[in-house]
Amino acid sequence: MNQLTKELFEKCKKYILEKGRPLEQHLFINYFVKPCELDIINDLKKYQNTDGGFGNGIESDFTLPYSSPMATSIGLRYLSRYDNQNEAILMIKKAIAYLENTYVPERKGWFAVPREVNDFPHAPWWNYDEEKGMTIIDKYWGNPSAELIGYLYKYREYVANLDVDNILEYAINNINSREVFESQHEIYCYIDLYHTLPKKLADRLEGTLEKAIRQLANTHVDEWEDYVPKPLDFIDNPNKTYGIDEESINTNLDYYIDNIKKNNIIIPTWAWNDYEEQWKIAKVEWTALITLNGLCILDKFNRIEK
């Protein structure tokens, strides 16, 4: 079995700890070295605004300092892992209040980012279309609304004004009514929702998620240098593979290892083609994050040399 050598692991570690943001550095340390949950929570405080939402470039492809539902989904994704800590709960409560204040009833969810995103460096797919009143991302309802509804459900004791059960029912029916799936990012958000739900509710999503992932997961290795959804993009651990076959998973694990052998890191497969100086910064941030995510998935599948 192809494994990542200790030497290559150390090279990845060096990059993350020297080039990554403090958030990614502490995420690495917490996973591979020793617990440092409070450090991660303190890092996240730098991205949370006084209105409870997250911004300030927590998502490296847009630098909008103001709060947005999309950035808040990322903040809550991390905080939900450490909700055994009182500091995390305080931040979660504020974020839930922000989500209630920005909820769009006629959409039964949220728009990803406000129009002010255009005033700051960002990737082209985050450009707010004034005519349509949204970004191209918002074509797919579930990104980030499905994920955010999961956090409302998980932390419903802090929800004051929204009917969580009604909104959740809409989210489940929204995806289950479809036969064709076009956005991997929307499915990532539904996977996050799936993981927040009790089994009885999660079971209602499982078949549709497997169908969507069969449609979207690209198994052609020769295309993986482009920005395509690979099998492991849908999988967080070996215990939940959504019907993806073992051969595809192993091929993807080998690809990560070969990629690190080639570059000593995992490099983003996309670029902004605009705001060149800011993209240089974002590329380094993304490289640290996706290298970290690659190491974590390799570790979970026992593909790192002990």
Rank of each mutant, 00 (worst) to 15 (best):
K154F: 03
P268Y: 08
V159E: 11
Y190T: 01
I267N: 12
K240I: 07
P229Y: 05
N218V: 08
A171I: 00
C189H: 10
E206H: 12
I235W: 10
D236T: 08
N174I: 00
S248I: 01
D236Q: 12
T251C: 04
Y158N: 13
F181G: 00
H195V: 09
R156I: 05
N259D: 15
N218L: 07
N237V: 03
Q215G: 01
T219R: 14
Q215K: 13
I172Y: 01
Y256K: 11
I267F: 10
H195M: 04
C189V: 03
W270C: 05
Y194H: 15
N259L: 10
N218P: 03
N252Q: 08
I187G: 01
P268R: 03
D165Q: 06
D203T: 07
T241N: 05
Y190V: 10
A212D: 06
I175Q: 03
E157F: 13
T269M: 11
N174M: 05
E206L: 15
T208C: 04
L168P: 06
D165Y: 06
N239S: 12
E169R: 10
H185G: 04
P198I: 10
H220C: 05
L197W: 12
H185I: 11
A171E: 04
E225F: 13
D163N: 15
D203I: 01
T241L: 09
D226E: 11
D192H: 13
I187M: 09
I267E: 15
Y158W: 14
D236V: 07
P268W: 06
D254F: 00
I187A: 07
V228D: 03
K262P: 00
Y188I: 14
K230H: 02
E186K: 11
S183M: 04
N218M: 03
L201A: 06
E186Y: 09
D233I: 08
N166F: 08
N176R: 03
A160Q: 15
L253G: 02
N174A: 04
N259K: 13
N166R: 07
E186F: 12
T251L: 14
N237F: 11
T269E: 15
F234V: 13
Y155F: 15
E223V: 00
S177M: 08
K199R: 08
Y170S: 01
E179T: 11
L197T: 10
A212F: 07
P268G: 02
H195S: 12
D245P: 04
Y194D: 15
C189P: 02
L216V: 05
H195A: 12
K262L: 11
D192G: 06
K262E: 14
I260C: 03
L205P: 03
E169T: 09
I175A: 09
V159Q: 09
N264R: 02
K230A: 07
E157P: 00
C189I: 09
N161R: 14
K200W: 08
C189R: 04
D192N: 14
I249Y: 10
Q215R: 05
A171K: 03
I191S: 05
Y153V: 02
Q215A: 06
A171F: 08
N174C: 04
N263S: 13
L197M: 10
I175N: 00
G207L: 08
K261V: 06
I175F: 04
R156A: 01
L205T: 07
H220W: 02
K200P: 01
N173P: 00
